[in-house]
Write a protein that binds this DNA or RNA. Structure first.
Lengths: 297, 297
DNA sequence: CCGTCTTACGAATGCCGTAACTATA
DNA sequence: TATAGTTACGGCATTCGTAAGACGG
């Protein structure tokens, strides 16, 4: 067992792929692959299930994960301890309200562990807030769905609206639905949804009238109502909730590309964060279990 | 920075010397020396002060120590996690009452970190107790001053009786005293002391009569009384107490050799523990600060 | 055919041991 | 002279990159 192997291991877990992990640790993909193999051999355990859908942790891998995290975090902290008075780098980061916190948390935690000396200051707000703060220099960068000026932003991932329905409800078995299926259906409206305008316009254009049973600006409440069978709701596919199944919206697809964007010349700490964010595994769940794990269980 | 370097680092701290550390990690001494140098270079910090009296940790070394401990402990634990159902090895260890617990604790902690799967069961008792338990097979090994049958014991370290006196008291400035100096001096008697018989016999033979002001079987109480100026007391040189200075007993030297001993054929776990105990730094304080540090401060 | 991971091979790095050296007591 | 640590040098393991192969969508 060796430190670099644990770094490779964490990189694979955090990026969700061998190739992206290789980028993150600045080696070629075969080199990283060999490193993981060495680690697996040293522990005499298979750590990842390599499947066409991606990478999944085995039980042994899950057992190793928290230990690897603390080992690498302690190493980084030890190195940080030794550089006294390094000018503290700060990154003020604005985050769009529409992004679920549990998706962002792993990225922030991973970054803090990798760069313990950097200070991350998070603030969330609407897309308008973010644009304003960015222009005023009150934040250094923003993660959201707003447009990025040329060369001052990178796409991170894309989400699409999906229909959230009770796991035992009428649509639970369907692989996809269309807007027409929503006519007269008991529906919940997330009043803060980024796509609300587009969707209602399209519904009106097609003469579809869902039966609104609840309006809320809380995603959590909306999903709980769905789980309870009150109705259905359109949510970004990032969300997960017990008792709720997500069904794809077939024909007109509503969605947003979430990007990291900034204003002016990127600072060093921003470059470092950008490297992390662009190679992050956005499909993973907040607790480290992979969303792709479905195929492995 | 690399794992093997941290292992070297811990070995040096725990054994108090480069040579003994090299034995412990099964490399030659130059190899270990180079490893430490690599670590110091990687962290850009001097970790050890090499003096003629031994090794002392620098501030940087002290800062690194707890992190190195958790890193290595987590690594060992991770490896241990991967071997499920390894037949749990148990070592029942008897410890003589005369040994201060704070001297033994570092050894036990270090061993537990190095071999997290092994189970250490500690029991303390008098030397007679230890001998009896050992013969009955109720403990696997004993650490104490009793004699070891041939080939069934190894010496660990030797202590001598020293005079404990108040730091601001009359003897505090002396480098050594003789028994004669104790005539009519206010003295405390540790009634459980291993050497009590020898000492009193010698005092009587010489016609020396200290003035007994307190009898106790608590080392802690005795030393507190000394610090308060009640009198002096003879204690093993292992002891430390705030406000108490130890002065050597010049001419007749009373002492004991502490050894690890067992009965019959040593088990594998005992061999493993013996390796640790024989290369342990018995001069170090319980909190990891070195007793030899005097020369470095 | 592209994306993803594995296998194969040559080069460079670096760990390790032996041996010689230095310094203190 | 003995003990403790450092420096010098050669052997060998291993990490890394490049290139080619296997595998599925």
């Amino acid at each position: 067992m060796d430190l670099y192997q644990l770094r490779y291991f964490l990189a694979v877990v955090e990026t969700g792929s061998f190739s992206k992990a290789a980028e993150r640790v600045f080696v070629t993909q075969p080199t990283l692959s060999a490193g993981i193999k060495k680690l697996e051999h040293a522990l005499d355990q298979v750590l990842f299930l390599r499947g066409r859908k991606g990478i999944a942790l085995t039980d042994a891998g899950r057992a190793l994960l928290p230990r690897a995290r603390t080992i690498i975090a302690e190493c980084n902290a030890a190195k940080a301890d030794m550089l006294p008075e390094a000018p503290r780098r700060r990154l003020r980061l604005g985050i769009g309200r529409s992004l679920p916190a549990e998706r962002l948390a792993p990225l922030l935690r991973d970054y803090r562990e990798a760069e313990p000396k950097d200070e991350l200051v998070i603030r969330d707000g609407s897309e308008d807030d973010l644009a304003g703060w960015l222009a005023q220099g009150r934040i250094d960068a923003a993660i959201g769905t707003g447009p990025a000026p040329d060369g001052q932003g990178v796409a991170l991932f894309r989400w699409r609206l999906m229909l959230a329905t009770a796991a035992d409800g009428p649509y639970a078995g369907r692989s996809a639905i269309t807007l027409e299926d929503l006519d007269h259906v008991a529906s919940i409206v997330r009043s803060h949804c980024d796509c609300l305008g587009e969707v209602t316009r399209e519904l009106i254009r097609r003469g579809i009238r869902p039966r609104i049973v609840c309006r809320t600006d809380s995603d959590e409440k909306a999903l709980r109502h769905v789980a309870a069978g009150l109705g259905v709701v359109l949510v970004p596919d990032l969300y997960r909730h017990p008792g709720v199944r997500l069904v794809a919206l077939a024909e007109p697809s509503f969605g947003r590309t979430v990007s990291l964007r900034w204003h002016g010349r990127p600072t060093p700490v921003l470059e470092s964060f950008r490297l992390f964010a662009t190679s992050h595994d956005w499909t993973a769940d907040g607790d480290g279990a992979s969303a792709r794990l479905g195929w492995a269980r």
